[in-house]
Design a binder for these strands. Structure first.
Lengths: 205, 205
DNA sequence: CAATACATACCAACTGGTCGGTATGTATGA
DNA sequence: TCATACATACCGACCAGTTGGTATGTATTG
């Protein structure tokens, strides 16, 4: 693929992503995307087999961006401290900065869109979304396991439980944020979760 | 409206609700609803001004059911104990039983659908969703304020923060539950939140 | 030249919505 | 009591516009 073709493909995915986040996938027509990009059917069907293929490539790209960002946060967090709990805190703080500054919607939002329009997508696409969320959870599981290996929690709890909770809290925050037109609900939820952690691991203070 | 007409309207709303939860609102055609009910265009447009009106009435009905259920949970919780913290716990436990046993999707899910397809709906409908979520939060705020009036939290925290967090946790749980095809992710999240409460209010034990 | 990258013209199916019609009420008044 | 008058509840054909998708063109570029 030439550089120009690559950028055309990206323009299509960008426009599609924006529209899907505003109107959902079924509510996004190919013509919408073409109108937004100034391209035509020929361009679209040159780059994608069809609308289902667009859905697949769109969520794949989101997942890739997402994973990269998380790995970068993790790297920065590990750089800041050797203590696993401080690393988790640093990681969450980096996420909070990102989420409250980001103009375009967070990747988590896109997964929710796919989830709530599930019958619109092929099974493999839904599986991909589910797997991506699991991968997201797994990153947290590893981080919390490191914490639990060093510190005793004030309550019996597993790394998986904590990981599921932060993912859940963030997804829920994104829903409320959108519903109310806020910009910082998700950040506040992440902060709340950190409060929970300070109560769970008081010895670390 | 006669009894027959009432039931016809309900059948239309039931079918529409089920379809919206599976395919989203834009992904749900009026013909879909009519096929599912065995009715015709005449019936639909007799009961609803149009698709936008259907959206309005659908979410209104969900909100009403929702509120009634929450009030009932609150009544039962107050019956079980005079202690505000025990009431919150009882309330959440009732919710956990409901959410893990419910076959049809929770009302919270419907709000998320509307939220993620926001451009599909009139402003007044979106406002209604936002207001309903706020009302939902307010119920929790009152409950947590009663707790804070009696007990000192281990960390400085407001009733609103706690209320927002439980709503967020539940909404997020519903997203993950759908994404993974679980039936008890939301319940687990509610349990996690109760763990947080026990750490926040240890004096109550 | 030949593959790539896009444009244009078109199609069948479906979309939300309208409209004339009908069947079944139910209230009224002589 | 029973015809008249009107409201309610629903049917199904039809419409203009939109949908995803195809077939065929042409310009560009290595």
């Amino acid at each position: 693929m030439t550089q120009k073709a690559e950028s055309t493909r990206d323009r299509l995915l960008d426009a599609a992503g924006a529209s899907v986040m505003a109107k959902g996938f079924a509510g996004t027509s190919i013509d919408d995307v073409l109108k937004a990009t100034g391209l035509t059917k020929g361009a679209f069907f040159h780059h994608f087999k069809g609308k289902a293929d667009l859905a697949r490539e769109l969520v794949k790209r989101y997942a890739m961006k997402d994973l990269k960002m998380f790995q970068e946060f993790q790297r920065q967090a590990q750089e800041q401290s050797d203590d696993p709990l401080e690393q988790v805190t640093a990681f969450l703080k980096l996420f909070e900065i990102y989420i409250s500054n980001s103009v375009d919607p967070a990747p988590g939002c896109m997964y929710a869109v796919y989830t709530y329009e599930s019958r619109q997508f092929d099974a493999d696409v839904l599986d991909f979304v589910s797997d991506t969320l699991r991968q997201w959870t797994s990153i947290y599981v590893r981080m919390f396991q490191d914490v639990l290996d060093r510190y005793d929690p004030a309550l019996p709890i597993t790394a998986r439980q904590l990981a599921e909770m932060i993912v859940s809290v963030i997804e829920g925050g994104l829903v409320l944020q959108r519903a109310h037109g806020d910009t910082d609900t998700t950040r506040r939820q992440s902060e709340q979760f950190r409060s929970y952690l300070t109560l769970l691991f008081p010895t670390a203070g």
